[in-house]
Computed example of a mutant assay.
Amino acid sequence: MPRARLARLVTLIAALLGAAALARADVGGSVSLQTDARERGMSYSAEKPSAQLGLAWDGDGGWYAGAQLAHARFVQRHGARLQAYGGRVVELVPGLDGEAGVIAQAFENVSHYDFQEVYVGLLGERWSLRLYHSPNYYGSGQRSVYGEFNLRWPVAKGVGLMGHVGVLRGYGATAAAVYAAAHGPTRVDLRAGASWLLGESCELQLAWVSASRGGPYTWSDAARRRSVLLGATATF
């Protein structure tokens, strides 16, 4: 993605969130530092420390939107990674909500990795279940389905346990399928850890992550498949 295009996207998102603030919606932000930025078990920071800036808007009627900006490293190419999302949460029954939304990913200098997903989910008080679909996952030419289950469980004041399991599967016969053929079209990722609140607006997380091989990925699979991560997030 050219720098000019990335700058325009960031400016547009900031303007939209600013307009939402004037419309009496809730707008917030976050800054995160991580020893290794991983998503669905895969490192997109080449196993190096990474910082991430996030903006989020919560509107009336359960509508929400936001964006996250980070630095991505893929083999010898690196640049900004922008994720924008939007959706809606509705109450189904007391204690159980449903949601649906869209996510767009854009990468500076590796624009062929750009992709979009739609998702639906169920949200409980301490858990969430989501299903995602992409027509061209990471520009691989393959469609994908990803399901995840997340759990957060408080064990003491300001202390909680968290768990995650996700399953990604690519499908569709393309040239990119040759990459997945050695390990199959399915990848499973796990995360387990604990979180600590530091004051009212900071959280510290320590987690163990693991991922199998396979799935519709097009970049190097040389990163460690198991790792211990430390991260800190401040909200404002």
Rank of each mutant, 00 (worst) to 15 (best):
Arg5Pro: 10
Arg5Leu: 14
Ala7Trp: 12
Ala14Arg: 09
Ala14Asn: 13
Ala15Lys: 13
Leu16Val: 15
Leu16Ala: 13
Gly18Val: 12
Ala20Leu: 08
Ala21Pro: 01
Ala21Gly: 13
Ala23His: 15
Arg24Asp: 15
Arg24Pro: 11
Arg24Lys: 11
Asp26Ala: 13
Gly29His: 10
Gly29Thr: 06
Ser30His: 10
Val31Glu: 13
Asp36Arg: 05
Asp36Thr: 10
Ala37Ile: 03
Gly41His: 06
Met42Leu: 12
Ser45Gln: 10
Ala46Phe: 06
Ala46Gln: 06
Glu47Trp: 00
Ser50Asp: 15
Leu53Ile: 07
Ala56Met: 05
Ala56Ser: 08
Trp57Phe: 12
Trp57His: 04
Gly59Asn: 04
Asp60Leu: 09
Asp60Glu: 14
Asp60Gln: 11
Leu69Ala: 14
Ala70Val: 07
Ala72Ile: 12
His78Ala: 11
Gly79Pro: 12
Gly79His: 08
Gly79Glu: 08
Gly79Ile: 01
Ala80Val: 07
Gln83Arg: 14
Ala84Gly: 15
Ala84Glu: 07
Tyr85Leu: 05
Tyr85Thr: 02
Gly86Asp: 01
Gly87Ser: 00
Gly87Ile: 03
Val89Ser: 12
Val90Asn: 14
Val93Glu: 12
Glu99Met: 04
Gly101Leu: 06
Ile103Asp: 14
Ala106Pro: 07
Asn109Cys: 00
Asn109Met: 03
Val110Lys: 13
Gln116Cys: 10
Glu117Phe: 08
Val118Tyr: 02
Val118Gln: 03
Val118Asn: 00
Gly121Glu: 00
Leu123Gln: 06
Glu125Lys: 05
Glu125Arg: 07
Arg126Leu: 09
Trp127Leu: 03
Leu129Gln: 01
Arg130Asp: 05
Leu131Ala: 06
Tyr132Trp: 07
Tyr138Ala: 12
Gly139Leu: 05
Gly139Met: 02
Ser140Phe: 01
Ser144Trp: 03
Ser144Leu: 09
Val145His: 02
Gly147Arg: 00
Glu148Ala: 13
Phe149Thr: 09
Asn150Met: 03
Asn150Thr: 05
Trp153Gly: 11
Pro154Ile: 11
Val155Thr: 09
Val155Arg: 10
Val159Ser: 08
Gly160Pro: 11
Leu161Met: 09
Leu161Val: 10
His164Glu: 14
Val165Phe: 06
Leu168Asn: 02
Gly170Cys: 07
Gly172Cys: 07
Ala175Glu: 01
Ala175Gln: 02
Ala177Val: 01
Ala177Asp: 06
Tyr179Cys: 01
Ala180Leu: 04
Ala180Gln: 02
Ala181Thr: 06
Ala181Gln: 04
Ala182His: 07
Gly184Asn: 03
Pro185Ile: 06
Arg187Lys: 07
Arg187Trp: 05
Val188His: 02
Val188Ser: 03
Asp189Arg: 04
Ala192Cys: 07
Ala192Val: 06
Ala194Asn: 03
Ser195Arg: 11
Trp196Asp: 10
Trp196Val: 15
Leu197Glu: 08
Ser201Tyr: 04
Ser201Asp: 10
Cys202Pro: 00
Leu204Trp: 12
Gln205Ile: 11
Gln205Asp: 13
Gln205Tyr: 13
Leu206Thr: 15
Leu206His: 09
Trp208His: 08
Ser210His: 09
Ser210Thr: 02
Ser212Met: 01
Ser212Arg: 00
Gly214Ile: 01
Pro216Asp: 01
Thr218Lys: 06
Thr218Gly: 05
Ser220Glu: 02
Ala223Ile: 00
Arg226Gln: 04
Leu230Cys: 13
Leu230Phe: 14
Gly231Cys: 13
Gly231Asn: 14
Ala232Val: 14
Ala234Lys: 07
